[in-house]
């Protein structure tokens, strides 16, 4: 195996990590695009999704039934749970502050994040829980010297399908059109008869559903879940959203994949102890040299 092959292998591993980042980054980016708010609790919604699908999976798995069917139930239940959670959070905690300065909204989001994280910590006593699907995780095929696991391929394809679906939803449906319009100019939309509050709620719901999918995928891939898994994932996903250009949907997808790949390469070069330093260093460099990201439009502030 040459050095070149090792790097290709890392890129393959990075793609799967990147697809998780991309799914979560979409939630950040969409919410930011619409109400210019940094939803700190998004990483914890992802964590909630992972735990939700885990709980439902075991509820059914203990009563017999095929694993894949249980997991399907699990992911659907997690999507519903997170959709409800996302809606509830924006309704109860965020909506009273939509007109307040962004700082207060962000602090509320930190509060919500603390609540979600510690609720799960209390339930699980701070221990990791394990998700065992009973399938062969290491099975795969090789292209040259590079090995690709089936599970990686399947999860990556699911992520791609979800992202394509989202793109279609945003670009070709009435609701998608409304979302794009509200992110452009909320007040004009209100004048045009668009119910902006409904659109905001929908954005939170879609973002949370994507986070639930990512959470389940992450649980299946790594096999263990912990209450603080959302924190690091949340910051990384935000980094991905910034790299791609926050508010931009293709930007979040590309940024996520890019960050995953770069992080995998960075791990190869600097060692795993420094991989997070690498990711955050990248974030700071990105913000310094290209704060609008790859797809971001430069925002001219008018007075």
């Amino acid at each position: 195996m040459s050095v070149f092959d090792i790097y290709i292998q890392q890129i393959v591993n990075g793609l799967i990590l990147g697809s998780f980042y991309a799914l979560i980054a979409l939630g950040y980016s969409m919410v930011y695009g619409i109400i210019k708010m940094l939803n700190f609790a998004h990483g914890d919604i992802y964590m909630f999704g992972a735990f939700g699908s885990w709980a439902v999976f075991y509820f059914f798995a203990n009563r017999a039934g095929a694993e894949w069917a249980c997991l399907l139930f699990g992911v659907l239940a997690a999507m519903c749970l997170c959709a409800a959670l996302g809606f509830l959070i924006q309704r109860v905690a965020y909506r009273p502050l939509f007109d307040a300065p962004r700082l207060s909204l962000m602090i509320v989001a930190i509060g919500v994040s603390l609540v979600l994280e510690n609720a799960i910590m209390m339930v699980t006593n701070g221990d990791s829980v394990y998700l065992n699907l009973g399938i062969n995780m290491t099975a795969g095929f090789r292209i040259g010297h590079v090995s690709v696991k089936w599970i990686q391929l399947v999860l990556f394809l699911i992520a791609v399908v979800v992202m394509v679906g989202l793109t279609l939803l945003i670009n070709y449906t009435k609701w998608g059109q409304a979302m794009r319009a509200v992110s452009e100019d909320m007040n004009t939309c209100r004048l045009m008869g668009i119910n902006a509050n409904k659109v905001i709620a929908l954005t939170f719901i879609i973002g949370s559903v994507l986070a639930a999918i990512a959470g389940t995928m992450n649980g299946v891939y790594y096999g263990s879940l912990k209450y603080d898994m959302g924190y690091m994932m949340g910051i990384k996903a935000f980094t991905a959203a910034v790299i791609g250009g926050i508010g931009s949907i293709p930007g979040a997808m590309l940024g996520g994949i890019l960050l995953g790949v770069l992080e995998a390469l960075g791990t190869q070069i600097c060692g795993s102890a420094w991989k997070d330093v690498f990711a955050f260093g990248l974030l700071i460099l990105m913000l310094v040299f290209k704060p609008n990201g790859i797809f971001g439009l430069s925002e001219t502030e008018r007075m």
Binding site: G111, S113, L114, E117, N118, M122
Partner: peptide, 12 residues
């Protein structure tokens, strides 16, 4: 354990 949970609710 619920200390941080209460803080979170308080903050909100």
């Amino acid at each position: 354990n619920s200390r941080m949970l209460i803080f979170g609710i308080l903050l909100v």
